[in-house]
Write a protein that binds this DNA or RNA. Structure first.
Length: 675
DNA sequence: ACACCCGTAAACACTG
DNA sequence: ACAGTGTTTACGGGTG
C-alpha cells in the first residue's frame, strides 16, 4: 500500500502523470538511454571476438551445408547404383506422425510432450528409443562444446583483462559498441542455425513420404541458394582451408586460435554484401571431396557419432560408420525426406542469414556514416528486402509475422521447454497445465522476445498459455510495435492476436494487463493526441528484478567492471532480435549450448554493462562453476530484462488453424480450461 | 519461515 | 448510466 505513488492515491491522475511527465515531452525518444559511456576496451579484442564468433558461425553453417550436401550426394550415388526399393515404404503409413506432434519433440522433450506422443501412439518404441538416443548423444555433444566454451571464455577473460589497461578514446568505444552489435548479429545467426539443426533432427523422427507433404516442404523447391549462400559458402570453404592448414581437421570449433587475420572478417561481411551476387557457386567442387577424403572431418561423422539427422549411432571407427551410412541412410523415402528437410533448413538459414547480413550491413553503414538521423541505408542490398535497420520503424509485419517459417501447424514451442533437462522424466508429466504463474522461478526468466517470436506460430494457434509474465508480454507487445508504444486496446489486440490462449478469459487477463501496466513502473503511460499510450522504460524493466548473471564469473566480473553500454543499445538489440525472430539468448531447446553460451557471454557483456549499477548480487556466486551444467545453461537467463519462467506449456495443443488475426475476444467468460 | 514475485479478483475513480 | 481506462489493495501460490 505504501507505494511511492501512494501519496497521491486518491486520484489516479497525478500519480500516473508524474510518471508520464518525464516522458511526455520527448515522446519515446526521451526515454533514458543516456548511458552511452563505454569503458575502454581495445579494438583488438573486438577483432578477436569477431573473428571467433564469425568462425563459429561459419563452422556451423559449414557443418550444416556439408551435412546437406552429404545427404544429397548420398542420394545421388544411390540413385545411380543401387536402386533398391525402399522397403520402409510399407511401414511408413503407420509411422506417420502428425507434424504438430513431431515438431514437438526436439532434443529436449518435455514429459508432457512425451506423453502426448505416447498417447497418440504414433511413435513406435524404436522411435522413442531413437529419441532417447538422440538426446543422450546431444548431451554428450553439448558437454564437449561446453568444454570448449569454457576455454574460450577464459581466453576472453584474459584478453579483457589485458585490454582494460589500455585506455582508448571514445571513438573506439563507439566502434566497440557497434562491433559488439556485430557480434550479436553473428550470434543470432549461429543460434538460428542451431535451431534449425534441431528442427531437422526432429524431423528425423518423422517418416515422411516424399510425395506427400505432410510437412510444408513445398518451399523447398523454390529457389534456394541465394547469393548470400554463395558468399557464405565461399567463406566457408576458405575457412576450411585455413583450418586444414594449421592443424588436425577434427577440431571443428577451435576458436581459440587467436592468430587470425585481423581485418578481413568484419569487412568481408560489410563489403561483400553487394558483391557476391555474381560470384559463382562451386559447391560441388573440391570442398566436399576434401571432407570425404579426410575421415576426421566427414560432415556426417563426428565424435564417433553418426550425424545424420535423427541418427546418432555410435561407431568406433570410420569404416563402420561408412558402412552404417550406406546401409542405414541409403536412398529411401526417409532419407529423401530428411534430405529435403535439411535442404529446407539450410534454405531457411540462408534466408535468415541474408536478412541478418543485410541488417548488419545497414547497421554498419549507419554507424559509419554516423548520421544521427534515421534514414534508410543508402546501400542497395541485393537480398531479401525490407529490413532497413536504420529506423527502428515499421517492421510490424515483418518481424514476427512473416518469418520464413515452415510449419504452419502449431508446433511445440522451441524454447520454453527447458524444464526437461533433456531427460524425460515421466513423473513430471502433470504440471504442464496451469496458469501462467506455474512458471519457473524468476531466475529462469527467459528472454521473452526471442522466445515469443520464435514460437509465435505455436502460441498463435495453440491454446497454450505462454509461459511469460504479463509484464513481459506487455513489454514485448509494446516493443514490437513500430512506435514502441501501444494503447491499452492495442495491447489487448496484440495479446489476442499473438496468443490463442488470450482469446479467452478476456476479463481476467485484461484486468491483469491493466493491473500490470499500472503496477510496474517500467510501463509508462504517455499522453498522446489520441489518448494515452503505453511505453516501456527499459531501465525500469531491468531494475524490476535482480538479475542473476550466471556463467563465467570471470567474464561477469569483467563485464561489470569493464563495460558499460547504454540501455539503448541493448534495447536496440532486443528489438533487433525480436524482429528477426531470432532467439537471442538461447533457447533452451537448441542443441549445442555452446554457441548459445557464447552468444550469451557476449550478450552478458551487454547486460552486465548496462546493468552494472545493479549489483544485486548478480554475480554473487563466485563459487559457481563458470558454466553451470548444461541444462542450466539452457535456462539461466543471462538476460536482465525479460526473464520469465519458461514453462508450463504443451498441454493440449488445441490448434485452431482457421483462426486469423481476430481482434478482441471479449467473450467467453465462464470457461476455465486453463485457469 | 520469510520475502518476493506473480496472477487473479475486485473495488474504486476518472473520463468520454 | 455505461464502458473503457487506470489505480490500488488484497490474497494465494510458487520460489529461493
Amino acid at each position: 500500500m505504501m507505494q511511492e505513488s501512494g501519496i497521491e492515491a486518491t486520484s489516479n491522475g497525478p500519480a500516473s502523470q508524474n510518471r508520464a511527465a518525464s516522458v511526455e515531452d520527448g515522446s519515446r525518444d526521451a526515454r533514458p538511454k543516456s548511458a552511452t559511456s563505454v569503458d575502454v576496451m581495445a579494438a583488438d579484442l573486438i577483432h578477436l571476438q569477431q573473428q571467433q564468433a564469425l568462425q563459429v558461425a561459419r563452422q556451423i553453417l559449414l557443418q550444416q551445408q556439408q551435412q546437406q550436401q552429404q545427404q544429397q550426394q548420398q542420394l545421388q550415388l544411390q540413385q545411380g547404383t543401387d536402386l533398391k526399393s525402399p522397403k520402409d515404404n510399407e511401414n511408413q503409413p503407420s509411422l506417420q506422425v502428425p507434424v504438430s506432434v513431431a515438431m514437438m519433440t526436439p532434443q529436449v522433450i518435455t514429459p508432457q510432450q512425451m506423453q502426448q506422443i505416447l498417447q497418440q501412439q504414433v511413435l513406435s518404441p524404436q522411435q522413442l528409443q531413437v529419441l532417447l538416443q538422440q538426446q543422450q548423444a546431444l548431451m554428450l555433444q553439448q558437454q564437449q562444446l561446453q568444454e570448449f566454451y569454457k576455454k574460450q571464455q577464459e581466453q576472453l577473460h584474459l584478453q579483457l583483462l589485458q585490454q582494460q589497461h589500455a585506455g582508448k578514446q571514445s571513438k573506439e568505444q563507439q566502434q566497440q559498441a557497434q562491433q559488439l552489435a556485430f557480434q550479436q548479429q553473428l550470434m543470432q545467426v549461429q543460434q538460428l542455425q542451431q535451431q534449425h539443426l534441431l528442427n531437422l533432427q526432429r524431423q528425423g523422427l518423422l517418416t515422411i513420404q516424399p510425395g506427400q507433404t505432410a510437412l510444408p516442404l513445398h518451399s523447398l523447391t523454390q529457389g534456394i541458394n541465394p547469393a548470400e549462400l554463395q558468399q557464405l559458402w565461399k567463406e566457408v570453404t576458405n575457412l576450411k582451408e585455413e583450418n586444414s592448414n594449421n592443424s588436425n581437421g577434427r577440431r571443428g570449433l577451435d576458436l581459440s586460435s587467436p592468430q587470425l587475420p585481423k581485418k578481413p572478417l568484419l569487412n568481408q561481411h560489410a563489403s561483400t554484401n553487394g558483391q557476391y551476387m555474381s560470384h559463382s557457386l562451386k559447391r560441388e567442387g573440391s570442398t566436399l571431396d576434401d571432407y570425404q577424403h579426410s575421415h576426421h572431418s566427414h560432415p556426417l561423422y563426428g565424435h564417433g557419432v553418426c550425424k545424420w539427422p535423427g541418427c546418432e549411432a555410435v561407431f568406433e571407427d570410420f569404416q563402420s560408420f561408412l558402412k552404417h551410412l550406406n546401409n542405414e541412410h541409403a536412398l529411401d523415402d526417409r532419407s529423401t525426406a530428411q534430405c529435403r528437410v535439411q535442404m529446407q533448413v539450410v534454405q531457411q538459414l540462408e534466408l535468415q542469414l541474408a536478412k541478418d547480413k543485410e541488417r548488419l550491413q545497414a547497421m554498419m553503414t549507419h554507424l559509419h556514416v554516423k548520421s544521427t538521423e534515421p534514414k534508410p541505408t543508402p546501400q542497395p542490398l541485393n537480398l531479401v528486402s525490407s529490413v532497413t535497420l536504420s529506423k527502428t520503424a515499421p517492421h510490424e509485419a515483418s518481424p514476427p509475422l512473416s518469418l520464413p517459417q515452415t510449419p504452419t501447424t502449431p508446433t511445440a514451442p522451441l524454447t520454453p521447454l527447458s524444464q526437461a533437462h533433456s531427460v524425460i522424466t515421466p513423473n513430471s508429466i502433470h504440471h504442464s497445465v496451469g496458469p501462467m504463474r506455474r512458471r519457473y522461478s524468476d531466475k529462469y526468466n527467459m528472454p521473452i522476445s526471442p522466445d515469443i517470436v520464435q514460437n509465435k506460430e505455436f502460441y498463435m494457434n495453440a491454446e497454450v498459455r505462454p509461459p511469460f509474465t504479463y509484464a513481459s508480454l506487455i513489454r514485448q507487445g509494446i516493443l514490437e510495435s513500430p512506435e514502441k508504444q501501444l494503447t491499452l486496446n492495442e495491447i489487448y489486440n496484440w495479446f489476442t492476436r499473438m496468443f490463442a490462449y488470450f482469446r479467452r478469459n478476456a476479463a481476467t487477463w485484461k484486468n491483469a494487463v491493466r493491473h500490470n501496466l499500472s503496477l510496474h513502473k517500467c510501463f509508462v503511460r504517455v499522453e498522446n493526441v489520441k489518448g494515452a499510450v503505453w511505453t516501456v522504460d527499459e531501465l525500469e524493466f531491468q531494475k524490476r528484478r535482480p538479475q542473476k548473471i550466471t556463467g563465467s564469473p570471470a567474464l561477469v566480473k569483467n563485464i561489470q567492471t569493464s563495460l558499460g553500454y547504454g540501455p539503448a543499445l541493448s534495447a536496440a538489440f532486443q528489438a533487433s532480435m525480436a524482429e528477426n525472430n531470432i532467439p537471442l539468448y538461447t533457447t533452451a531447446s537448441i542443441g549445442s549450448p555452446t554457441l548459445n553460451s557464447l552468444a550469451n557471454a557476449i550478450r552478458e557483456e551487454m547486460i552486465g554493462a548496462m546493468d552494472h549499477g545493479n549489483s544485486n548480487g548478480s554475480d554473487s556466486s563466485p563459487g559457481r562453476s563458470p558454466l553451470p551444467a548444461m541444462h542450466h545453461i539452457k535456462e539461466e537467463p543471462l538476460d536482465p530484462e525479460d526473464h520469465e519462467g519458461p514453462l508450463s506449456l504443451v498441454t493440449t495443443a488445441n490448434h485452431s488453424p482457421d483462426f486469423d488475426h481476430h481482434r478482441d475476444y471479449d467473450d467467453d467468460q465462464g470457461h476455465d480450461d486453463m485457469l
